Simulated scan of single mutants.
Amino acid sequence: MKKTNLLLVLGALLVFFSSCNKDDSAPATKADILANKVWRITSHTVSPGRQTQDGSVITDLFQYYGTTYQDDVVRFNRNPNTYTFEEGPTKSDPTGDQVFNAGTWMLNSDETVLVLQSANGQFFSYGQIVPISEEDVIIVSEGSATHLTNYNIVDLTATTFSYNYAYRLQQNGPVYTETITYTAE
Rank of each mutant, 00 (worst) to 15 (best):
M1Y: 08
K3F: 11
K3T: 05
L6S: 05
L10S: 12
L10V: 15
G11M: 09
G11R: 05
A12T: 12
A12Y: 07
L14A: 15
S19K: 04
T29A: 02
I33F: 02
L34N: 04
N36S: 15
R40P: 00
S43G: 11
H44W: 14
H44V: 08
V46K: 06
V46Q: 05
S47M: 12
G49T: 11
Q51E: 15
T52G: 00
Q53W: 13
D54A: 06
D54K: 00
F62I: 08
G66T: 10
T67I: 10
T68I: 07
D71F: 11
D72L: 09
R75F: 11
R75C: 08
N77I: 13
E87Q: 14
G88E: 01
G88C: 02
P94K: 04
T95G: 09
G96T: 10
G96R: 06
D97A: 15
V99T: 14
T104P: 06
N108M: 09
N108Y: 08
L114E: 02
V115Y: 03
V115D: 00
N120Y: 11
F123C: 01
F123A: 07
S141V: 12
G143V: 07
S144N: 11
S144Q: 15
A145G: 08
T146N: 04
T149Y: 03
N152C: 01
I153Q: 00
T159R: 09
T160W: 02
A166P: 01
Y176R: 06
E178P: 05
Y182R: 08
A184M: 03
